[in-house]
Simulated assay, not measured.
Amino acid sequence: MMTLSQISARMGALVTAAALSATLLFAAPQAHAAANNSYYKAELAQPTTAKPELLRSVYVRCEGTSCRAPIASTAPKNMCVSIAREFGAVTAFTAGERVFTAEEIAACNGDNAKAIAKN
């Protein structure tokens, strides 16, 4: 037979485990969603006041010279080209952990951007 203190200890452990599970259940998806909102990151040469724009099936939001968008089913180079066309010259671009080189950024901004977007 269990004593009252043993029952209390087990109930305390159960309540703690339930609280921790509930926290992880709600916090983990929110952290994942927050991370998804900034998979693509672009820095613009000039600030923009443009409203969020639907580009390549995701909304791109810009504030000043910083633009952010969640992951999309498009190649990073195509997203870079789309952002440059819609919001202006891009000076830096990342897709997840991938940082674009100076040559890739020039291609986003260049005359050959249409050809790159089709590839």
Score class of each variant (00 low, 15 high):
residue 86 E to Y: 02
residue 83 I to S: 10
residue 106 A to F: 11
residue 40 Y to N: 00
residue 61 R to W: 10
residue 64 G to P: 00
residue 53 E to W: 07
residue 92 A to L: 09
residue 96 G to A: 11
residue 36 N to F: 12
residue 101 T to G: 10
residue 99 V to W: 04
residue 78 N to C: 08
residue 96 G to E: 00
residue 41 K to L: 13
residue 41 K to I: 14
residue 88 G to V: 05
residue 73 S to Q: 13
residue 112 N to E: 15
residue 90 V to A: 03
residue 39 Y to M: 09
residue 59 Y to M: 11
residue 96 G to Y: 05
residue 58 V to A: 06
residue 87 F to T: 10
residue 43 E to T: 15
residue 115 A to G: 13
residue 30 Q to Y: 13
residue 37 N to K: 15
residue 72 A to Y: 05
residue 52 P to V: 06
residue 79 M to T: 03
residue 103 E to A: 04
residue 60 V to A: 02
residue 67 C to P: 02
residue 94 T to K: 02
residue 112 N to P: 09
residue 112 N to Q: 15
residue 57 S to E: 14
residue 99 V to M: 11
residue 39 Y to S: 01
residue 56 R to W: 11
residue 89 A to N: 09
residue 77 K to R: 13
residue 54 L to R: 08
residue 54 L to T: 05
residue 31 A to W: 13
residue 108 C to H: 03
residue 105 I to M: 09
residue 52 P to R: 09
residue 111 D to V: 11
residue 80 C to P: 12
residue 94 T to M: 03
residue 36 N to A: 12
residue 30 Q to H: 13
residue 114 K to P: 02
residue 80 C to V: 08
residue 31 A to N: 12
residue 98 R to G: 15
residue 53 E to N: 04
residue 81 V to N: 01
residue 84 A to M: 02
residue 94 T to E: 10
residue 69 A to H: 04
residue 73 S to H: 14
residue 50 A to S: 09
residue 57 S to A: 13
residue 40 Y to L: 04
residue 113 A to E: 07
residue 92 A to F: 05
residue 72 A to M: 14
residue 86 E to F: 06
residue 59 Y to T: 11
residue 62 C to M: 05
residue 92 A to D: 06
residue 41 K to M: 02
residue 92 A to P: 00
residue 105 I to E: 07
residue 79 M to F: 11
residue 43 E to Y: 11
residue 44 L to F: 02
residue 65 T to A: 09
residue 70 P to N: 11
residue 80 C to G: 12
residue 46 Q to S: 15
residue 51 K to T: 07
residue 29 P to C: 01
residue 79 M to P: 03
residue 79 M to V: 06
residue 112 N to I: 15
residue 91 T to W: 05
residue 85 R to Q: 12
residue 91 T to D: 08
residue 38 S to N: 05
residue 28 A to L: 15
residue 33 A to E: 08
residue 87 F to H: 07
residue 36 N to P: 08
residue 95 A to G: 08
residue 87 F to P: 01
residue 86 E to V: 08
residue 50 A to Y: 03
residue 86 E to A: 12
residue 86 E to W: 02
residue 59 Y to W: 10
residue 99 V to T: 13
residue 96 G to V: 13
residue 77 K to Y: 07
residue 27 A to H: 12
residue 64 G to D: 01
residue 32 H to P: 07
residue 77 K to P: 00
residue 99 V to F: 06
residue 69 A to S: 12
residue 37 N to H: 13
residue 34 A to S: 14
residue 100 F to K: 03
residue 42 A to L: 12
residue 60 V to F: 06
residue 40 Y to S: 08
residue 84 A to P: 06
residue 91 T to S: 10
residue 53 E to L: 10
residue 75 A to H: 12
residue 64 G to M: 10
residue 112 N to A: 14
residue 95 A to I: 09
residue 38 S to F: 09
residue 39 Y to P: 12
residue 58 V to W: 00
residue 67 C to E: 10
residue 92 A to K: 04
residue 91 T to G: 04
residue 69 A to E: 03
residue 81 V to M: 11
residue 65 T to Q: 11
residue 26 F to V: 15
residue 66 S to F: 07
residue 70 P to M: 09
residue 45 A to R: 14
residue 87 F to Q: 04
residue 43 E to M: 15
residue 36 N to V: 00
